[in-house]
Design a protein around this nucleic acid. Sequence first.
DNA 1: ATCCAGGTCTGTT
DNA 2: AACAGACATGGA
Length: 282
Amino acid sequence: MVEIVVDDSFLISQILECGQSFRYKHIENNIYDIIAFEKRIRINQVGKHVYMDCSNEEYNRLWVRYFDMDRDYEQIQSVLVKIDPVLKKAITEKKGLRILRQAPFEMLLTFILSQNKAIPQIKVLVERLCETYGHMVLDHYGSYYTFPTAEVLAEVSVEAWRKLKVGFRAPYLYDAIQKVVEGVIDFATIEEMDDNMARDKLMEINGVGQKVADCILLFAFGRVEVFPLDIWVRRMMTHAYFNDQMITDQIILEFADRYFKGLGGLAQQYLFYYGRDHQIGK
DNA sequence: ATCCAGGTCTGTT
DNA sequence: AACAGACATGGA
């Protein structure tokens, strides 16, 4: 068991429920289970005290990076809250969220599945994917399924994907997986690219547009300057900064790029979570 | 029943 | 380059 002391920029409920993660389970009160890196970890947060059911060695090797512990969120928030009252309100309410560093392959498939789906349904699809093609692991809490590897999924046909009820996303998944096993998409290479090059590379996959690519860059590669523009962020942005006018994605993206001072991805996540929670613009 | 969901693709102007 | 429709599935 690891115990760490955190400040207000770490709240496990907000970290998990802000919409970036789909493989967690709320156990009770402030206790959550997370499945990542083929492991399951139980987290219990009581105020400033966070208890993680793992060894010190594992915490340092896996979870420090996963929870983005080396980034100074309080410093970032102090910059963002000065920008405007809307952002300040969102951050004041959602200051406990952090951008997780999740596995690139998992983010790729998860955000392909996410398109035109509500978050609870995305969770269902991801879970079905893991139960069908992942492997079962037993631990002292019971059993769980890992996120399957690209090698295993390479054998899944488009028709088999359809049977999992992924709908029109079936050929998208198929193309993404093939490109990964062929090495056309190589995450170590993408890691070294700048944002625009990395985005263009990811968008070579059929079914990956700018929004999905940007989610991968933000949630797997920690690119906190990229700004995934989805329906909720669009509503929030048009409402807060464009007087509810109809406006193109291009305008919003250009605005966000200069307005959020290189912290667009973080601003985006505070705004997304706040906007979705309060149904802003719906 | 009709609309909508952390979008993207394809075909038309 | 900008804009509509189509696309599977399930919940409200």
